[in-house]
Amino acid sequence: MKRTAEKVLTWIGILFQILMIALIALVLPFLNDDSIKKEAVNRIQSMQADGSLHQSLSQVTPSELFDLVKHGAIIIIIIAIVCFILAIIMTQLMRRIPKTIGILLILMAIVNLLTGNLITSLLWLIAGIMLMARSDKAKQYAKKQAKQVKNKATNKNSQNSQQYKRSNRK
């Protein structure tokens, strides 16, 4: 089976993943800039003073909070790149082992939710479910044909043995 729909959904998800990786890659260098860090720290301090910042976040210093965001962005981009590479590999293996790839796509969609890329996760989830749900008609037909050939051979052998028994009785 060609699995065209599943491949198309997976490739569209890969394109959205590339866009997300590019967006994070564009933002990441700005997080290392001292002027942006100072501006972000000042805004966080003003939010703490206003009381608009959540109380659990007010226990962390603004500098630590900014560093947490920076490290979080790095972790997100690493997860996104790994999922991107795995998705490309999976599209190549879809025809050979569709059920396994379906399970892996579903798991990868769940992991990809950590990156916040909902569109890609949804597309990969749908493709994984389709891979698991659709049966391979060519394989079923081949099994049916093999079973019919086996039954014919078995019937022929039993007829030959019955004829042999009849000829031996005479």
Rank of each mutant, 00 (worst) to 15 (best):
I85G: 06
N168I: 02
K99E: 09
M90G: 05
A127C: 08
I89H: 05
L93Y: 04
T10C: 10
R43T: 01
M1L: 09
I126G: 00
I89A: 08
N117L: 06
N42C: 00
T100N: 01
C83W: 08
I85S: 06
R3W: 12
L23C: 04
L123M: 07
M47T: 00
S167R: 13
Q163E: 14
I44H: 02
K137E: 02
W124L: 04
L31C: 03
T154D: 10
L105W: 13
I44R: 01
L31S: 07
Q45R: 06
A142N: 12
M108W: 05
I12K: 00
A138D: 15
R134C: 10
Q17L: 04
F66I: 06
V111G: 03
K170C: 08
R95M: 02
S167Q: 15
N160A: 10
N32P: 00
K99I: 09
A127G: 05
G72R: 03
I106N: 04
I129W: 09
V60P: 00
Y164R: 14
T154F: 15
I77C: 05
N155Q: 14
G13K: 01
N32L: 14
H71E: 15
I76Q: 10
I12V: 09
D136W: 13
R134E: 14
K147W: 07
K38W: 00
N155T: 12
E39I: 01
T10S: 14
M1T: 03
K147T: 02
I76E: 07
K139I: 13
R43C: 00
M108G: 15
R96M: 12
S158F: 08
I101Y: 02
Q145S: 08
K99H: 13
Y164P: 04
M20T: 10
G102M: 08
L68P: 00
